[in-house]
Amino acid sequence: MRALTFHGTRDVRVETVPDPEIVNPRDAIIEITSTAICGSDLHLYDVVIPGVQKGDIRGHEFMGRVVETGPGSTLRKGDRVVVPFTILCGGCFFCQLGQFSACDNSNPVEKQDASEAAYGHAMAGPFGYSHLTGGYPGGQAQYVRVPFSDVGPIVVPDGVPDEQVLFLSDILPTGWMAAENAEIRPGDTVAVWGCGPVGLFAVQSAMIMGAGRVIAIDHHPHRLDLARGLGAEVIDHTRTHVLEALMEMSGGIGPDAVIDAVGIESHGFAPDNMLDTIKQKLLSGADRGHVLRMALMAVRKGGCRSRGSMAGWSTPSPSGR
């Protein structure tokens, strides 16, 4: 098959590689019909995440049609499925708690030692990511092997276009969970840093959860336009002092909830951010916490903060679902 493979910093190539096959009983093989590029693919492209190897197949947001199933799969040949990016067993302590992204059994045993040493616990195994998380081949390819295919994949009906369901693979639930973790109550004022796909989904999720006002922060005019179009008020952080604006907009107490949807490669030239950038260049795996720190300053006393996506050491906590 043809697949997008990693070769070095900012060097990815479409190559011919062996087709995947059923290896474990609960596997299924999916023929990809659509796949997306995620913000976290950029971390791999820039090699901000450790544990990437030459030849790794990229991509963790994908959907397609089932072409082969193992005896333990509940999928049927021809099923149309969206595949969530985290591989989850469904049977371990964490899966049974509903904290699927902390699954104990998806990262192969021999790959667990590195993340256990770095983060305290072994991470679960998403597709197309790092060898710290299992080194599973990803879905920016013609075919992908889906382990535990009886648990993760969402069967979708024919007649719905790919573009309407593809984002169930990662960014819609990531934005949704960021809003869910912000514990929004009806009428709350919610500030969202970052108007990329996760931020825009967090804006919409916050509204569905009853936020009275959503304030979206970014510097790309087209992203701010999109957020405005979804009903958010916007702040361009290159033109406005964000902290002051948020205080003024919330009657001097700060937003009830803040969401960081910028994540580990936040941009900007604030001194703490530049320091983080240097740290990140020297030490693959460190995160840039400027947005997180600003969000913590802004949130009202006793309010709630939440992050869309994280990998790094300023908050090395597993984020559950």
């Binding site: 995947p20 096959e21 290896v23 474990n24 049977g91 059994n105 195994g125 535990f148």
Partner: peptide, 14 residues
């Protein structure tokens, strides 16, 4: 893994 899932996880494709 074997007890909880009936198999031993691997990331190999073949």
């Amino acid at each position: 893994m074997l007890v909880e899932t009936g198999e031993i996880a691997t990331s190999v494709n073949r």
